[in-house]
């Protein structure tokens, strides 16, 4: 996870929201999507495919489904279509999309 973010976030005033990513604390400006928060946090992958290939949010408009992450225990959540909320628990997904919930190990 030590890839620097590929974006520079403008120093705009406003509230910040605290969340966790794979258990580690993180924060982002209020009003952004989970996908934007993850891209501002790091340039690394947020999902691994069945074949183990790294992916992260791609289209940012709900079309490609490459931004799927686990949000508050719900897997396969489109990060780009979900607004970040205070205290959210976000986990990266690896491998097959799971029908039953929970991230696959």
């Amino acid at each position: 996870m030590n890839v620097a973010s590929r974006f520079r976030t403008l120093p705009e005033t406003g509230d910040r929201v605290q969340f966790t990513l794979d258990g580690a604390p993180a924060s982002a400006p209020a009003g952004v999507t989970v996908a934007a928060a993850l891209l501002a946090h790091s340039g690394a992958w947020t999902r691994q495919t069945v074949k183990g290939a790294p992916r992260t949010a791609y289209c940012m408009m709900g079309v490609c489904f490459d931004c799927l992450v686990e949000v508050d225990g719900t897997p396969n959540t489109q990060a780009c279509m979900t607004l970040l909320r205070e205290g959210m628990t976000v986990r990266r997904q690896t491998g097959l999309r799971d029908l039953n919930g929970g991230h696959c190990g």
């Binding site: 520079r8 976030t9 403008l10 400006p29 952004v32 999507t33 934007a36």
Partner: peptide, 9 residues
């Protein structure tokens, strides 16, 4: 949506 600017793009 987030005031995020591409860096070195």
């Amino acid at each position: 949506t987030a005031g995020m600017l591409p860096k070195d793009a």
